[in-house]
Simulated scan of single mutants.
Amino acid sequence: MAFEIGIMTFGELTEDPLTGAVPSPRRRVRETIEQAKVADEVGLDVFGVGEHHRGDFVGSAPSILLAAAAERTERIRLTSSVTVLGSEDPVRVWEQFATIDLLSAGRAEIIAGRGSYTESFPLFGHDLRDYAELFREKLDLLLKIREQNPVTWQGRFRAPLVDADVAPRADGETIPIWVGVGGSPASAMSTGRLGLPMALALLLGPMTFHEQTVDLYRESAAEAGHDVDALPISINAHGYVGRTSRQARDFMYPYFAKGMAENNHQRGKGLLLPRAAFEAQSSPRAGLLVGSSQEIIDKLLGYHELYGLNRAIIQMGFGGVPQKEHLEAIERLGTEVAPVVRREAASRSGRAA
């Protein structure tokens, strides 16, 4: 499998730590579509929009943003990152992404996850005590909808379907469905048993953070009779591609620290990230993908060697990175990083075979 590289955003509305300015929601959604357009133009493979239901994000309806991006792009794949499936209706999810698939001539995909932020559950009338079971049941229905039409299905959390016609269908044969996994052994094992692609999320920590996750995923897939070598794995991580190593770190740090302090308040009162801790997380064996183009190349190839990854999606605008610098980083990722990583990953995979 070819190595794919992309970008993602949640559309944060964060106060700029240097100027104090806060972008309007209108400005942020327009910037999001511009990011997709530039990512497509510079040859990146994937553009993702994540889902949050709070006033400091504009990503409450990723499918609408992705539909708009479909009209401004030609080749890049368009994915949710992630769809919080436990609080969604799988029928509606399928209808929305099948429509994106038609608009984009077959470029839509879904990354379904439980969601590390839980504001959508009470918002849509779900009990958080059902958090895990909601996801399992709704993933089962989403996969059933993908596999057959009309569909007959019965579960606990929604009305049954009897010969239901769920339309439209995909533009091509199918729509890829990945499962987003944050490190839960149970999630990795269930994803492996289903034979679905796994999208790993890495906020902070060492590159090796997901070694057990990947091992459990592949062991479970093999036990269930799936071809392990045919199952894609991705890493979704924060980063920034700068002109130089120092410029990248100096530029990213105040925005990333601001985002960690203000956009993570559901995990407590926000996470204070001293500069020394940020520098440690930017080191060669740590998870953040920040540095010069060559540093990002080296780290992505390190991830490829470590996990056998087939894809990396980088969130480069976290904390309200200004659009000019964000687009410059996207261009570097597409023109300076991606071609080298694809070539080297293909070469190394060929030698391994």
Score class of each variant (00 low, 15 high):
Thr213Pro: 15
Arg243Phe: 01
Ala222Ile: 04
Ala230Gly: 11
Gly183Met: 06
Leu141Phe: 13
Asp215Thr: 12
Gly239Lys: 01
Gly195Cys: 02
Arg193Met: 10
Asp163Leu: 09
Phe157Arg: 07
Gly180Met: 08
Asp165Glu: 14
Val214Thr: 06
Pro232Leu: 08
Glu147Thr: 15
Val241Trp: 00
Gly182Met: 05
Val162Ala: 14
Val241Pro: 00
Lys144Asp: 10
Glu147Gly: 15
Ala159Met: 05
Gly225Tyr: 05
Arg156Glu: 13
Gln154Thr: 15
Glu219Cys: 12
Met198Asp: 04
Val214Trp: 12
Leu203Met: 14
Ala221Asp: 06
Gly225Leu: 03
His226Phe: 14
Asp227Glu: 03
Phe209Cys: 15
Arg158Gly: 10
Gly242His: 09
His210Met: 06
Ser190His: 09
Leu161Ser: 07
Gln212Ser: 15
Tyr240Glu: 11
Thr244Ile: 08
Met189Cys: 07
Asp215Pro: 01
Arg158Ile: 03
Pro176Val: 00
Thr174Lys: 02
Arg158Leu: 02
Ala224Cys: 12
Tyr240Ser: 07
Gly183Lys: 03
Gly183Thr: 09
Ala199Glu: 08
Ala201Ile: 14
Arg243Asp: 13
Thr213Leu: 15
Arg243Leu: 06
Val214Ala: 07
Glu219Gln: 15
Val228Met: 00
Ser220Ala: 06
Ala224Asp: 13
Val179Tyr: 12
Lys144Gln: 10
Arg193His: 04
Leu141Asn: 11
Thr152Ala: 01
Phe157Leu: 06
Gly182Ala: 11
Gly239Cys: 00
Ala237Gly: 12
Arg169Gln: 06
Asp140Asn: 13
Pro232Ser: 12
Pro168Gly: 04
Ala164Asp: 10
Leu141Pro: 03
Asp227Ala: 09
Leu161Lys: 01
Asn236Met: 10
Arg146Cys: 12
Asp227Gly: 02
Arg243Gly: 06
Phe209Lys: 11
Tyr217Val: 03
Val166Ile: 09
Ile235Ala: 15
Tyr217Glu: 00
Glu147Tyr: 13
Leu203Tyr: 11
Ser234Thr: 00
Leu202Lys: 11
Ala222Asp: 08
Val181Pro: 07
Arg243Tyr: 02
Leu200His: 09
Leu142Pro: 14
Pro197Leu: 04
Ile233Pro: 01
His226Lys: 05
Ala222Met: 11
Ala224Arg: 08
Gly205Asp: 15
Gly192Val: 04
Asp165Ile: 11
Pro176Asn: 10
Gly195Leu: 02
Val179Leu: 05
Val181Lys: 03
Pro232Lys: 14
Gly195Asp: 12
Leu216Lys: 13
Gly239Met: 07
Met207Tyr: 07
Asp229Ser: 15
Arg146Lys: 04
Ile233Gly: 01
Gly195Ile: 14
Gly242Ser: 04
Ser184Cys: 04
Tyr240Gly: 08
Ala230Thr: 05
